[in-house]
Amino acid sequence: MSLTGLFPIDKWNFKSHSILNDLPAEEYDELSRHMTEQEYHKGETLFREGAVPQGIFFVRQGKVKKYKTGRDGKEQIIYVANSGEMIGYHAILAGERYPDTASTLEKSLIAFIPKEDFVSVLEKSTVLPRRLLKTLSHEFSVLANSISIIATRPVKERLAIALIVLREKFKAEAKPGEEIVVDISRHDLANMAGTGNENVVRILKEFKLSGILETKGRKIFIHDVKKLVEQSGCGL
């Protein structure tokens, strides 16, 4: 089922997948010449908060969580990047260290472009700077919205929003007619919703009894996304 007319999914998703699309051939070719690919296992780190950026990362396949770690060691997941999205470029553009940590949620294929090569293309391009500016502006809105939700919404609504967003992430890789499976640990789900594992288990049980979803181990099957949107309090 589509979220069109039900839920404002654009308020929750970055648009970095569009940055490299249809670049002038010479610019894309130059970036591609310096691009390397590497397979990462689930849970491997791409970069850490506070590290000096060495380049940008492009998610070819898989999913990557971006998170900050509090003084108590607890993670707060601020975004999940999907296949086709680019991460790690904010620090390079700002000339600062990475503001967060990125690690894989599942086995992933990640492309890497060294900082010097990315900046070289950026300085010569007439298209890339505009796209980055537009993307960064949208990402600011997404993050501001996410912070507001964490600070003001009840846990049940936050978890419903997290499940809706994840459903769209996993839907992108499902074949037409294939059931959408959200495959994520309860720990990561709790860190997305800004709550504890016990609350996630309790609310998932409520959603299950309401016929909204079904769980099999760590896998979540959302059967009634319309009801889930109602639980989120963010319907259109």
Rank of each mutant, 00 (worst) to 15 (best):
R202S: 14
L133V: 07
M35Q: 13
S16F: 05
D100H: 06
H41G: 10
A25S: 14
I92R: 04
I212F: 12
L132T: 02
E39I: 14
Y98N: 03
E106F: 08
I147Q: 12
P176Q: 13
R131P: 04
S18N: 08
V142N: 04
N145P: 03
P53T: 07
E96N: 12
A102W: 02
L3G: 04
E49S: 08
S137L: 11
G95K: 03
E75I: 02
A94S: 10
E106M: 11
P129Q: 09
P176R: 13
L3H: 02
L143E: 14
F118Q: 02
Y79L: 08
V127L: 03
E168N: 15
F58G: 01
I56L: 13
S83V: 03
F118I: 06
R153G: 01
E26Q: 04
I212N: 00
E214D: 13
V119P: 02
R186Y: 03
L209S: 11
G196D: 01
E96F: 06
I161R: 02
I92P: 01
A174C: 09
L143M: 15
G196M: 03
G211R: 14
S232M: 11
K63M: 12
G95D: 10
K227H: 07
P8A: 10
G196T: 01
T135M: 12
L105S: 00
E96R: 07
I19V: 15
E27P: 04
A94D: 01
R131C: 02
R186I: 10
K124N: 11
C234L: 15
D224Y: 08
I164Y: 06
I212V: 10
A91S: 15
N199R: 10
E75S: 05
K205A: 06
E178I: 06
V225A: 05
H34M: 03
I222A: 05
D72R: 13
A111F: 14
I9T: 12
A174H: 08
I149F: 04
N199C: 08
S32D: 14
K66L: 12
I203E: 13
R186G: 05
K15V: 13
S16Q: 07
E39T: 12
N199P: 02
D22M: 15
A172P: 00
E49W: 14
R158N: 00
K115S: 10
A94Y: 00
F207E: 10
P176W: 12
I220G: 01
F7T: 01
L236C: 00
V165R: 10
Y40A: 03
K42R: 15
G73C: 12
R186K: 10
A190T: 00
L46H: 01
E179K: 12
N197W: 09
F14L: 07
I9A: 05
R60D: 06
F170C: 03
Y67M: 10
E39K: 03
